[in-house]
């Protein structure tokens, strides 16, 4: 009897073969392991990071021998003593932490109205415009954005040229602390808005209408209704902005011009300028610890509910 190919096409035969192979290679009684099998590649990839942290930990206990430029064989805590006693690192850490706090507050203040309008506007075109304006810089990358600021704020940049037209002496707008913070705020805005958006769109518009119908003006409605309900989103966004700006490298490097180093820059310099891998690893490990401490602190203060949100969005 002649069987037409259309009746049982080749792709079906291949699928049959594959099904038989799967059934053979993975009998039903091992079914409970299937999710773990599916998770395996991702677990292995992230495992690289864990091995990396272990390596950092190992190197952090070795000191650099200045005569041979090799790392010592035996473990010491000398690097940790240096990290905590040398004033340079205290200065850098204070500068980073203070900067990150300022950046977080400014970013949240700027991001909140933007997010609010974005989720509340009935105008679909406006919403699309606001979203596009948000995603473009997010996708353009830090280096190009910092380069844009160099053109705008440089000594012969746009702002100074414009000031020159009205007879003002050129101002030194770059390579100082405010320039770095300014660049960081711009860098963090998309992260903050994207984390605030789900929290704000979860607030029912009727609640605001209710508050207003009870006689509250918009300022009172905002401080007594919107702001408290948005707290989980604000905490999540603040946490993300704080850790990302605390650990940033590019903005201090480009807009700070080497004089405004943050912790990440100090770590980089230990590895690539002084070649002291031990001290660099120590600083990196301390930074990782500080970051974890921040996350832990926020969970302890505000509950794990905030993390459920920050868990899925950076």
């Amino acid at each position: 009897m002649r069987q037409t190919p259309a009746a049982y096409p080749l792709t079906w035969r291949i699928m049959d073969g594959l099904e038989a192979f799967v059934a053979f290679a993975w009998p039903a009684r091992l079914g409970a392991a299937i999710p773990w099998l599916m998770l395996a590649p991702a677990l292995l990839l992230v495992g690289l990071l864990v091995i990396g942290l272990v390596q950092i930990g190992d190197v952090s206990f070795r000191t650099l021998d200045p005569s041979t430029y090799r790392m010592s064989e035996n473990y010491t805590i000398a690097n940790y003593q240096r990290a905590f006693t040398e004033s340079l690192f205290a200065t850098v850490a204070t500068r980073s932490l203070l900067g990150a706090l300022i950046v977080t507050v400014v970013t949240l203040v700027l991001a909140f109205p933007y997010t609010y309008l974005m989720v509340r506007t009935p105008n679909a075109m406006l919403r699309k415009l606001l979203l596009t304006a948000l995603f473009l810089p997010f996708f353009i990358g830090q280096v190009v954005r910092a380069y844009g600021w160099l053109i705008i704020l440089g000594n012969q940049g746009m702002v100074n040229e414009a000031l020159g037209l009205v007879g003002v002496e050129p101002l030194r707008l770059l390579y100082n602390y405010p320039a770095v913070l300014f660049g960081l705020v711009q860098y963090m805005l998309p992260f903050a808005v994207l984390m605030l958006a789900p929290a704000l769109s979860a607030i029912p518009e009727e609640l605001e209408a209710a508050a207003e119908s009870l006689g509250a003006n918009w300022v009172r409605t905002f401080t007594h209704v919107v702001l408290p309900l948005a707290r989980p989103g604000l905490v999540g966004a603040g946490l993300v902005v704080l850790t990302l700006s605390l650990t940033d490298f590019a903005m201090p490097a480009i807009l700070g011009g080497g004089s405004q180093d943050f912790i990440a820059n100090a770590i980089y310099d230990q590895f690539f300028r002084t070649s002291d891998q031990g001290l660099g690893s120590t600083l990196a490990l301390l930074l990782v610890a500080a970051g974890s401490l921040l996350v832990g602190l926020v969970i302890a203060l505000f509950g794990a509910g905030t993390l459920a949100l920050s868990r899925v969005r950076r």
Binding site: V46, L48, L49, I51, G52, L53, Q55, I56, V59, T243, L246, T247, F249, I263, A264, I267, Y268, F271, G280, S281, A284, L285, L287, V288, G291, S292, V295, R314
Partner: peptide
């Protein structure tokens, strides 16, 4: 990957 600071991840992977 999100909770470890980027510089930490980068240095770790560089060592690995």
């Amino acid at each position: 990957p999100f909770t470890i600071p980027l510089i930490g991840s980068g240095i770790g992977l560089m060592l690995v």
